[in-house]
Amino acid sequence: MTAHIELRLLPWTGPDGKPCYLSTDDTNSRLSRLADTTEAIQLDLADDLVAHALAVLDDDQTEMETLRDLSTDLLEALRDTLRVATSRGQRLPLPQPTTQGGDNNPQLPAAAFG
């Protein structure tokens, strides 16, 4: 049986704005570690930006240009965060099939979903 290699969505785009992917089964390769580090930095920057946005929006004297700049920065951070979430979601292990019946396959009534 051969190893199944998935493409990893990287946390940056190419010069033309298209997504970049990594094909490797080595999660500790140099490029994998660089992608992990870049994702962590992007998420930390997004967290800092949220705190900054709250302060800017709390100031009644904030000028329109500042709000435009903030909106641009928030959009970039959201785009990066969504790319990280997509990449990490694609790398989650698939659920293992369970046998029919038993406690491994609980069922909820439709009313449980509102």
Rank of each mutant, 00 (worst) to 15 (best):
29 S>W: 03
57 L>Q: 14
65 E>A: 14
85 A>M: 10
32 S>M: 10
35 A>L: 10
90 Q>D: 10
17 G>Y: 06
68 R>V: 13
84 V>E: 01
108 L>F: 15
10 L>S: 04
86 T>C: 02
11 P>T: 02
27 T>L: 08
10 L>E: 07
113 F>Q: 12
71 S>Y: 02
104 N>M: 09
2 T>E: 05
18 K>P: 01
69 D>G: 15
73 D>T: 10
86 T>S: 05
86 T>N: 06
111 A>T: 15
92 L>N: 08
77 A>R: 07
28 N>G: 02
75 L>M: 05
54 L>D: 15
65 E>Q: 14
68 R>M: 09
13 T>K: 11
64 M>W: 05
1 M>G: 12
20 C>I: 00
43 L>R: 14
8 R>C: 00
61 Q>F: 06
33 R>K: 14
22 L>V: 03
1 M>A: 09
39 E>F: 01
81 T>Q: 09
87 S>L: 01
106 P>G: 13
77 A>E: 03
73 D>G: 00
81 T>H: 08
48 D>Y: 10
72 T>I: 08
109 P>W: 07
99 T>P: 06
28 N>Q: 13
10 L>A: 05
62 T>S: 14
92 L>P: 04
100 Q>C: 00
8 R>W: 10
101 G>V: 04
29 S>V: 04
29 S>A: 09
9 L>T: 00
89 G>R: 09
81 T>P: 03
17 G>N: 10
99 T>D: 11
86 T>Q: 13
30 R>F: 08
33 R>V: 14
40 A>I: 01
35 A>P: 12
45 L>R: 15
44 D>S: 12
61 Q>D: 12
60 D>W: 09
57 L>Y: 11
73 D>L: 12
109 P>D: 12
78 L>N: 10
84 V>N: 05
78 L>F: 06
61 Q>Y: 05
63 E>C: 03
73 D>I: 03
13 T>C: 05
87 S>Y: 04
46 A>H: 12
47 D>C: 08
47 D>N: 14
22 L>N: 08
31 L>M: 13
63 E>I: 04
69 D>L: 04
34 L>K: 13
12 W>D: 03
84 V>A: 06
23 S>K: 14
15 P>E: 14
15 P>S: 08
12 W>M: 05
